[in-house]
């Protein structure tokens, strides 16, 4: 099979839906096999904003990848649990043979209070998943990538909130900045092994994480039931390009470039897919 990542295996966290699923499908379209991981459960602190992915969502990702005639090994696991992440990876490698691409994508989005009013639980959940979970994903996979001796590509999902301050989104913003520091350090440490490490920085992406009433209310605080139609122009006003948000496929195309050998000398870069949000 031909394709821009033909013959490669990609380990993707948060793969049940949203950007993670989109990445799995896009890479599979271009010839990759997939090791997928998702918590596939509600997280208590997130429930007030949006529901967690489900096991049915993860099964749908499996079905979509298999429909492309690619293989996928999917595991229900929490990125906060290092042993579970490691086991999911090893199970995938046992079946698919190797791992060449890592997409540390799993993340949660909490917001609504000024930083000094954020609860300790909210802070811990966001940092544990969005930062420590990314580190644990990398920690699980790096020894094997080094041992394989064939290089590799790690792509960490950051955000425009990894480049700019965002009021009332303190833990998320802190975590998304922090992964940039982790990326830069890993890029230096892993360069001699030809393992590349980069971040992607989307603006709002049309996924359940932002297309929900609670998020719309962040922009429309006086509306009891703000709608997507009401929110769209306000979202658009934060971007330079005249779009409210981007599609998961737009981020997947950037991830695909970084994952492929087309980017074999791209490391340490912050690849923004942000419609000009951070240029304003």
């Amino acid at each position: 099979m031909s394709g821009r990542v033909a013959g490669k295996v990609a380990f993707i966290t948060g793969a049940a839906r949203g950007q993670g699923r989109s990445h799995a499908v896009r890479l599979a379209q271009e010839g990759a096999d997939i090791i997928a991981l998702d918590v596939a459960a509600d997280i208590e602190s997130v429930k007030r904003i949006y529901p967690g992915a489900t096991e049915a969502d993860l099964a749908e990702t499996v079905a979509q990848v298999e429909a492309l005639d690619r293989r996928i090994v999917a595991t229900k696991a929490d990125v906060r649990d290092f042993d579970a992440v490691k086991a999911a990876l090893e199970r995938g490698v046992a079946e698919l043979g190797h791992v060449d691409i890592v997409l540390a994508n799993a993340g949660i989005f909490l917001f609504g209070e000024p930083a000094h009013e954020v609860s300790e639980t909210d802070w811990r959940d966001v940092v544990d998943i969005n930062l420590t979970g990314v580190w644990q994903t990398c920690k699980a996979v790096i020894p094997r990538m080094i041992e394989q001796g064939t290089g590799g590509s790690i792509v960490i999902t950051s955000s425009t909130a990894g480049l700019k301050g965002t009021p009332y989104v303190a833990p998320y913003t802190a975590s998304k900045h922090a992964v940039v520091g982790l990326m830069r350090t890993l890029a230096l440490e892993l360069g001699p092994h030809r393992i590349r490490v980069n971040t992607v920085h989307p603006t709002g992406v049309a996924t359940p994480m932002i297309l929900n009433e609670a998020t719309f209310r962040l922009f429309l605080p006086d509306e009891e039931h703000p709608t997507q139609e009401q929110a769209a122009p306000i979202f658009a006003s934060t971007n330079a390009l005249p779009v409210p948000w981007v599609e998961p496929a737009d981020v997947s195309n950037a991830v695909l470039f970084l994952a492929s050998d087309e980017a074999r000398y791209v490391t340490g870069t912050e690849l923004k897919v942000d419609a000009g949000y951070t240029t304003r």
């Binding site: 830069r184 230096l188 981007v246 737009d250 695909l256 000398y265 490391t267 340490g268 897919v273 240029t279």
Partner: peptide, 20 residues
């Protein structure tokens, strides 16, 4: 069009030169 929403980017293709 793969990058239809990418603008204002400084895209390093630098083998990690600028992060050293």
């Amino acid at each position: 069009d793969e990058s239809r929403y990418v603008t204002g980017l400084e895209f390093t293709v630098d083998a990690g030169n600028t992060i050293r």
